[in-house]
Amino acid sequence: MIQLTNIQKVYQTRSIETLALDNVNLEVKAGEFISIMGPSGCGKSTLLNIMGLLDKPNEGVLKLDGEAINGHSDKQLARIRNEKLGFIFQSFHLINSLSVLDNVEIPLLYRKVSAKKRRARAKEVLEQVGLSHRMQHYPRELSGGQAQRVAIARALAGNPQVLLADEPTGNLDSKMGSEILELLHSINRESNTTIVMVTHDKLMAEKTERIIHLFDGRKVN
């Protein structure tokens, strides 16, 4: 599903050059649920951003669903992100000015889907995450766990092949965290969605099929 070959990412400022990823090779198979672990600043999020086409590597090849991502325009990348990828973030990143239902509809806004179908799909995924009773609420009115469920519903709305989760339980207590992880597992099982999760939590990571360890931008065993 995702193939990374010799990925290198360097962040350059006027005086400092930081090697964020150094020759990383990784293959994530369709339907797999993997986690990426490592200390802060080791390049976990950078790797996830490159997989999510939110950042570009300086060197190396990224293939997504067999398609090499190289020289794509902003519009083409936006289309791929919209159709194939879903994102979950540690701080939820919901839009406060929109209701829960409107937040969940976001990925579908950028597709040729009628308003009626968008609403129906958003309601469907909100039911899936157990938040159908909060549809008309605003993000400010939700607890952390509920907000993350809305973020998961938003990620699922577009029916993506891959879910990229950047520390999805990082801002939640352990009980909520476990519930969210269980939800991700059920999504992975039921719809065979590939999930790549960045986490600091070893217990969470151990519940996934495979753990990738990063250290100083390199993949380690």
Binding site: L54, A78, R81, E83, H93, I95, L109, Y110
Partner: peptide, 16 residues
């Protein structure tokens, strides 16, 4: 900017 970034993440092109 957060909202713009989210929309971009979920597939909004610059023109849109």
């Amino acid at each position: 900017s957060e909202e713009i970034a989210i929309r971009k993440t979920y597939g909004a092109s610059n023109t849109r």
